[in-house]
């Protein structure tokens, strides 16, 4: 089980996967938006999205868990 974490504070602009989806390691899970910059967050491991902890418009802090991949 691997946690996908936010590498910057910001708003969740787009959620690109759903729980139960299979993802590969380079696949983007969400796109964060902060201060006119968009940062895609990749899964980093291949597997199934077990849990999505955020929805669009949510605010996340750096280090917050975005999703859990199994």
């Amino acid at each position: 089980m691997t946690e996908v974490k936010a590498n910057m504070a910001g708003n969740v602009w787009k959620v690109l996967v759903s729980e139960g989806d299979t993802v590969d390691s380079s696949q983007d899970v969400v796109i964060l938006e902060s201060m006119k910059m968009e940062i895609p967050i990749a899964a980093e491991v291949s597997g199934t999205v077990k849990e999505l902890k955020v929805k669009e418009e949510d605010f996340v802090n750096e280090g917050d868990v975005i999703a859990v991949i199994e």
């Binding site: 590498n7 910057m8 504070a9 910001g10 902060s34 201060m35 910059m37």
Partner: peptide, 13 residues
């Protein structure tokens, strides 16, 4: 800037 000095990623708070 409110940003990380190494990655230049935004750092609101």
């Amino acid at each position: 800037y409110a940003e990380d000095p190494k990655t230049f990623f935004p750092s609101p708070g």
